[in-house]
Amino acid sequence: MPEPVLSLRDLTVEFHTDDGIVHAVDHVSYDVYPGETLGVVGESGSGKSVTVMSLLGLVPQGRIMSGQALFKGRDLLKLPDKELRRIRGKEVAMVFQDPMTSLNPVFKIGDQIAEALQAHDPGLSEDDARTRAIELLDLVGVPQAPRRAEQYPHEFSGGMRQRAMIAMAIANQPSLLIADEPTTALDVTIQAQILEVLRAAQREMKAATILITHDLGLIAEMADRVVVMYAGHVVETADVGTIFHAPRHPYTLGLMGSLPQVGRDDEWLRPIPGQPPSLINVPPGCPFHPRCALSEGRIECRTRLPELAPVDGEYHLSACHFKHELRERSEELLRHMEGIA
């Protein structure tokens, strides 16, 4: 494999609140390779968004306690604010979850896109920026782009706003695009269109993409490789085929179980029993053990944090003490969970 665009090592982010320290991201490591789409999946609160946003300095309340984030050879965590600003929106761009609140309500759409261009090219004239903004809107499939550029966000539908967000993100041809739940807030019918736009944009820009989502369907459709996160930890990572066909972490398996499957008699979802832990009092040992069907009260799970280690081959990693048992027992375990739920 080539050099990664982004290489995260041992990133730890905490929030200090009145109720205690929130361990939002705990020693997270993963790589993103050029041109690929990396899916990061997990429940809300698993730290999947905080991880990437803290790299870019977008989580002001979060304290980065340790770690390294090599982007094109430079550690983002050590960059002074000025340098980091030059990377944000130029080298690394983001598409956020909620297009309804992510655009500034008091500025015209075209101006907001033009602003992204001018932020990284101060020499660009107003007129040129505007022309380019219209081209970008056209590229992401906003009809009548010249007219729409003069409108305010409240005059756009949710899907159109998300297109505008994507136009803004790709304005400076970033080498890494981060899409944080880009379709979650949209109607199902619009979701597919936005995915198509995202895919086209990615092709056009040849950018690596981190797709953050809780939706395994989206992962299956879009991702090349997958990182599964739980309670601030990476619990499993592999290519997309492996994740779906040979998961080696009970949590990943649980996520599969809660995925509706076409052609199965029972259409209802099989949830993972229990609830995600409070990130203030993370359970000792493996954070997943209270909900884990495989753990069954084993002492090791309650006392020792499992390391993210290779399963079979270098690129499939799982953080489970008993990952090898999953090969034989996955069907049995799924039934077991069903029984509890």
């Binding site: 977008l58 655009l103 500034n104 932020a119 990284h120």
Partner: peptide, 9 residues
């Protein structure tokens, strides 16, 4: 939207 503005650089 302020986060977006910051993310733009």
């Amino acid at each position: 939207y302020v986060r977006t503005a910051r993310a733009k650089g």
